[in-house]
């Protein structure tokens, strides 16, 4: 096998893994910090994609459409937290079912508003040549975006007062209140940030994954498994499992078939759960 082909496969696999990571971070924040399984995460991603798409259709540059998408999803996320999630903290399976209901409601709303087929936006055209092969540049850029997003969330959660409050409020809710933290308000913000990250993912991936009402389903399953396998050290764990599972699946898919890639993903997930019933990071002694 030629070296340039191998490099191409590795780069594109890393890019697939990064795309998975971008789609996962928001879920990691919400599940890891709040213990809420947000099955509507994929739909927040979809809302972000449509928000960005609509903004560009009004002539707003793509770069500015991204923050708009974040603002829209954060707002909706905050409303959802106040109306639904807040009543269900500590009831893992109820949050799962309620957000599943939310997910199908959002999906249907998107069908009603946007229809099932929507125009994509063109992918920024730049390419990377490796030997005899040429790779589209934008998906490769996602490797950097994933890295930046991970670092951003890490810094937000570990270096800011909000981040400390958010972690305190979720690690020991009662004790957090006893030192003056308004846990409810902090939790609303954390959930909104998780949704905002989904919106960011939807917007930034728009050139690669066109906006459709059902795009959420495709992402949420793998993102969700990634986070559960990651365990309590959510962010680092998710980055690791996204690269391992997503990258591994992508490499498998390049050499075999896309189905083999998916099978790889699910089999390894089951295997890891069997080995580490509480997630691979259950015994780690690090913060995020």
């Amino acid at each position: 096998m030629e070296l340039d082909y191998l490099a191409t496969v590795l780069l594109s696999s890393l890019s697939s893994a990064s795309i998975l990571l971008i789609a996962t971070i928001g879920l990691a924040v919400v599940f890891g910090l709040m213990g809420v399984i947000n099955l509507a995460h994929g739909e927040f991603l979809m809302i972000g994609a449509y928000a960005a798409l609509t903004a560009t259709q009004y002539g707003i540059p793509f770069v500015i459409a991204i923050p708009i998408a974040i603002a829209v999803t954060m707002t909706i996320g905050a409303v959802v937290e106040v109306l639904i999630i807040r009543r269900l903290y500590g009831r893992l399976f109820d949050t799962m079912l309620a957000t599943w209901g939310l997910s199908i409601a959002f999906y249907q709303l998107a069908v009603l508003i946007f229809g099932t087929v929507t125009p994509g936006i063109g992918m920024p055209q730049f390419n990377l040549r490796i030997g005899n092969y040429s790779l589209a540049g934008y998906p490769l850029l996602m490797i950097a975006v994933a890295a930046v997003a991970t670092v951003f969330v890490y810094v937000l959660m570990t270096r800011t007062v909000y981040g400390m409050k958010a972690r305190a409020a979720i690690q020991m809710p009662e004790m957090a209140r006893a030192i003056g933290i308004e846990s409810a308000r902090v939790n609303t913000l954390t959930f909104a940030i998780g949704c905002g990250l989904a919106g960011f993912a939807g917007a930034v991936l728009l050139p690669i994954v066109p906006a459709t009402p059902s795009m959420g389903f495709a992402f949420v399953i793998k993102a969700f498994l990634t986070v559960v396998v990651a365990g309590p050290v959510t962010l680092t764990g998710s980055a690791l499992t996204a690269v391992g599972l997503g990258g591994g699946a992508s490499v498998t898919a390049s050499f075999l078939t896309s189905v083999a890639g998916d099978a790889f993903f699910f089999l390894i997930t089951a295997f890891l759960l069997w080995l580490y019933p509480l997630g691979i990071t259950a015994k780690w002694r690090t913060k995020m």
Partner: peptide, 26 residues
């Protein structure tokens, strides 16, 4: 100020953060 029985410190935060977050919050 409250120090509960069973010392409920925030386990996945550092010593500095445990103290810092209490001060900043107030």
């Amino acid at each position: 100020g409250y120090v509960p029985q069973g010392r409920y410190v925030f386990p996945r935060m550092t010593v500095t953060e445990n103290i810092g977050v209490a001060a900043e919050t107030n």
